[in-house]
Nucleic acid binder design. Structure first.
Length: 262
DNA sequence: ATGGCTCTAACATAGAGA
């Protein structure tokens, strides 16, 4: 079974790219973030035509929004809200074989990495704290679980193109990295990317629009993550960042991440 | 210290992304 995650930065703007990606990479299940559309306007038919007839859609007008698209029937599905808000940032399904798949979109955190001065940064830290608590509740022990999505934190030095330069930039501050690593550690989940790509090697999934020629200069960040539980690790056979989508015409700033689970 | 670019909502520009 092939699972993918992709922050598409508007599902309606990215339909051609989704068709191209799904035709070539052929994921069985695809987690989307930043769909930016209310459920009534979600392009369900276009995605059904690509073979993704099973869909969990959890969106809102203009911002946020997650969806899980699948060729494989779900055995269960749901959504959750976080930090006492109605933001659409989390959906999950149960797949055949008892695999629990969670799709997350963590808040970006605004421009200033100070929770006293920036409410969005405080919200981000609170979200990561709630994630750590959520993962701890015996949710992962002995279970076949995959957590994937745009977690909006690049926790390792090699997860950004210039560690020293970006230490005070939101997404790579020590407090965010600590929060993310705590959520990972407390959950007992394994960072699938770093299972395949050693921590000493640079690895990115996002190249910003605003920095001139960020892709050509490879000024990237690893913001999109896949975590798997220990019982699934023997079945985890492949990991790939599909960087080429970033050079397609009018791309998302994020690229897909794909794993294979036997 | 700031903005760079892209998208949405709604029709000119402002907010969000990270």
């Amino acid at each position: 079974m092939r699972l993918a995650t992709w922050n598409v930065n508007s599902v309606r703007q990215r339909l051609q790219h989704l068709a191209r990606f799904c035709t070539t990479a052929a994921p069985d299940v695809l987690c989307l973030q930043e769909t930016k559309v209310r459920d009534a306007d979600f392009p369900a038919h276009d995605l059904r035509d690509l073979g993704y007839v099973h869909q969990v859609v959890h969106g809102q007008k203009g911002y946020n929004g997650v969806a899980i698209l699948s060729r494989i029937p779900f055995e269960g599905e749901g959504t959750e809200t976080w930090c006492g808000r109605d933001d659409r940032r989390h959906a999950f399904v149960r797949l055949p074989g008892g695999i629990e798949l969670h799709n997350f979109y963590v808040p970006s955190g605004g421009p200033v990495p100070d929770p006293e001065r920036n409410e969005k940064f405080a919200h981000k830290l609170q979200f990561l704290t709630e994630m750590a608590r959520w993962g701890r509740r015996g949710r992962t022990a002995g279970r076949r679980l995959v957590l994937m999505g745009d977690l909006n934190v690049a926790p390792l030095e090699t997860d950004v193109w210039n560690h020293k330069k970006l230490l005070r930039s939101v997404g790579h501050t020590p407090v965010e990295s600590e929060h993310l690593q705590r959520a990972l550690g407390d959950s007992g989940l394994i960072d699938a990317a770093r299972h395949f790509v050693p921590p000493g090697e640079h690895l990115y999934t996002w190249w910003g629009y605003r920095f001139p020629r960020s892709l050509e200069k490879n000024y990237g960040w690893r913001l999109d993550h896949v975590w798997v539980s220990a019982p699934l690790l023997p079945a985890l056979h492949g990991f790939r960042v599909v960087k080429e989508t970033r050079s397609w015409e009018r791309p998302s700033d994020h690229v897909p991440v794909v794993i294979e689970v036997a």
